[in-house]
Amino acid sequence: MDAREWIERFAELVEAEADHLTRLDAAIGDGDHGTNLNRGLRAAMASLHADLPPGKVLTTAGRALISKTGGASGPLYGTALRRAGKALGDTPEVGAGELATALRAALEGVRELGRAEEGDKTMIDALAPAVAAYAATAAEGMPAAVRAALDAAEKGAEATIPLQARKGRASYLGARSVGHLDPGAASTVLLFRALADVTPAGA
């Protein structure tokens, strides 16, 4: 897994989907998710100088996201990437097993920071099943595991539609938050789509 390609692809996908994410956020959040995350990821790309080991790529990008995003998605995605990067340490190559550890660390970081559980209608609803699906499939190799993670993230995000939000601005809407896709879960799908896009089938 090439960490720089992963973040680069995530930045491209978020840029392409920025308006869509912002529209989702305008329905139940404060309407800035796409704009914010796009800004944060641009800063993240600018912060990555050449020849960083994969773990350092993720911690550096995470730091930039925390500093430059401006909304809740900065600390959340930033912490996810930083924890994942720290879990990778100085390893020069990321195999299926290392990535499993890194993804688990990312999930733990987001859980601790946001105190959200599955079912609260947050990014955790896509992230948690994706990480679990990856772990369950990791023995079959990275391409299969990454594909399984993306499928699980998509299903998890889709499943936020009927949920009532229990975190963030949307939680004040109560029952009126039902019927909308959670924007954080939607952007989490892009994180895993990016990972799938940069994982060659034979890797």
Binding site: I66, G70, G71, A72, G74, P75, L76, T79, L113, G168
Partner: peptide
């Protein structure tokens, strides 16, 4: 509230 709390917690972790 919201991102203020998340930013404060992230800062403390740093």
């Amino acid at each position: 509230l919201g991102s203020s709390v998340l930013t404060a917690k992230t800062y403390l972790e740093e």
